[in-house]
């Protein structure tokens, strides 16, 4: 069988997984993506984020995100000890061009990368009138571009502001955890391009995923837990002022 370079490379990530399985003595678990074997999530380590905006740019390039809209973005918080509940937040162009230098040497600063929380009880899929947005069997909240009406009800229902109406396609759009990548054994564009490892794609159904150890040993939080959306993007070291 003769394969060209492209085919070999396309197969390569799958082969890497296969190799891991072979090493682990379980070659039958190899390739061929099965949805029932995954439950995707993401881990974000606030203490590692430097606000470079690489994730925002990578996401925009990988997913052709229209200018002014964001599947992922980064916010910079400035919290003063005198007013813990009223943080000053900026996110110029979603952090796409990075952030201006912080000058006020009071309180604390930190960056909060945001993306769709891939909620297990997602309010956005609940309100979709036609079933154009849904939770896939492997736990990714997706939009069916061929079926969406563009009514924007889901945009209203998302407590995190993760959705937008695509100005050209006129359908709802949002982060789908780079589904075209993760089903081929790659990580998301944002995780691939995060220079500090502040973002890690995680598979909650994979017992070998380091996320399990991390969740057991760290103070991890989700955004707006009072919304009870079953959010699956976990934040390490999240400050209480973040909303």
């Amino acid at each position: 069988m003769k394969m060209n370079r492209r085919q070999i490379l396309m197969l390569m990530p799958a082969a890497a997984i296969a190799w891991e399985s072979i090493l682990a003595g379980t070659p039958e678990e190899a390739p061929n993506y099965k949805m029932s074997e995954h439950w995707w999530s993401m881990l974000i380590d606030i203490s590692k984020c430097i606000g470079c905006g690489n994730c925002v740019r990578a996401c925009a390039a990988e997913n052709k995100v229209p200018a002014g809209h964001f599947r992922t973005w980064v916010e910079r918080y400035h919290v003063d000890d005198e007013n813990m509940t009223e943080p000053q937040v900026i996110s110029p162009n979603g952090g796409f061009d990075g952030f201006p230098a912080a000058t006020e040497d009071t309180g604390k600063y930190f960056y909060v990368p945001k993306l769709c929380n891939q909620c297990a009880d997602s309010p956005c899929t609940q309100v979709c009138p036609v079933g154009a947005t849904f939770i896939s069997p492997d736990g990714v909240v997706m939009v069916d571009r061929k079926y969406c009406l563009g009514c924007a009800y889901c945009v209203q229902a998302c407590p995190y502001g993760c959705r937008y109406i695509h100005p050209e396609l006129e359908v709802a759009d949002k982060c789908d955890l780079c589904y075209h990548r993760i089903t081929k054994g790659l990580t998301t564009a944002c995780c691939e391009n995060c220079p500090t490892g502040a973002r890690q794609l995680a598979d909650l159904k994979d017992p070998k995923d380091p996320i399990h150890e991390f969740l057991r040993t760290h103070n991890v939080q989700v955004l707006k837990p009072q919304m009870a959306t079953g959010a699956k993007v976990f934040y390490n070291d999240l400050d209480g002022s973040v909303r």
């Binding site: 309100v127 009138p129 036609v130 154009a132 924007a152 009800y153 006129e170 359908v171």
Partner: peptide, 20 residues
């Protein structure tokens, strides 16, 4: 609607949890 031509979907495949 962004796609008014698809509005019939609301009758053909209504999502039972959607008020709309």
């Amino acid at each position: 609607l962004g796609h008014p031509e698809r509005s019939f979907e609301m009758y053909f495949t209504p999502h039972s949890t959607s008020a709309m």
